[in-house]
Amino acid sequence: MEAKLLVAVVADELEEAAREIAREEGARGMTLISARGLNFPEHITFFGLTYYGIETVLVALLDEATAIRIAERMNIELKLLEPFKGLAFCLPVEGVGGIDIEALHRHIIELGPVDRLEDSPR
């Protein structure tokens, strides 16, 4: 099993929905980074100001199948391919020191639906 880095750049108002999709599909953790977007050519507002969209970058290291499933679902459900919405994609990871991606994948399968986690003690 190969590891993939899921990268999702989403408009700020879509962050919660993107996190929920990732959680439902098996992501157990991710890093969130606040960002500003700039388009080329620049998008000018009606006041003549340049639009810098407020965005969130979600990053998670996952097994290949989970990462691709999450990226595809985000792109479709959140309509990320439309202008000023964002984009979700996966990058290959050559080495994952300290992480057994096969064990991670087995663990996700054994956990089953995320709903079971909500009832378990922490």
Rank of each mutant, 00 (worst) to 15 (best):
D12Q: 05
G48C: 11
A35K: 13
A11I: 04
E25K: 10
E15H: 02
E24R: 08
L32H: 05
R23P: 01
T50G: 14
R36H: 14
I68M: 01
A17D: 08
L61M: 09
G26H: 00
N39D: 04
T66N: 01
R28L: 08
V59P: 08
A22T: 02
I21N: 00
T66G: 04
E42F: 12
I68E: 11
L58F: 04
T50I: 07
E15A: 09
E42Q: 15
A17R: 09
R73W: 03
L78K: 03
I70F: 01
E77V: 04
L32K: 04
R73S: 07
A27P: 07
I68R: 12
L58I: 15
M74V: 02
E77T: 07
R23S: 12
D63E: 11
E15R: 03
Y52S: 09
A11D: 14
L32F: 02
D12T: 13
R73P: 00
A60M: 07
E13A: 14
I21V: 00
L62K: 09
A35W: 09
A18W: 00
A11R: 14
R23G: 09
A71F: 11
S34N: 12
A71R: 01
A11H: 14
A71Q: 02
G26P: 02
A17Q: 06
E24V: 03
G29Q: 00
D63S: 10
L78G: 05
N75T: 07
L38E: 11
D63G: 15
T31F: 03
A60K: 03
A71M: 10
L32D: 05
D63R: 12
N75Q: 02
A27V: 03
E64S: 10
V57Q: 02
A60N: 04
D63M: 00
E64M: 01
L78Q: 13
R28T: 05
F46V: 10
R19V: 08
L61D: 08
Y52Q: 10
A17N: 07
R69D: 03
A18D: 00
I68W: 13
I76V: 12
E77A: 13
T31L: 04
E15I: 03
R19A: 06
E15P: 06
L49A: 15
R73Q: 02
A65F: 11
L62W: 03
I70M: 01
I44Y: 10
E15S: 07
N39S: 09
H43T: 14
L61F: 07
N39A: 12
G29Y: 01
E77M: 08
A35G: 14
I21F: 00
G29T: 06
I33D: 03
G53P: 10
L38C: 15
L38T: 12
E20K: 13
I68D: 11
G48T: 03
Y51A: 12
E24T: 04
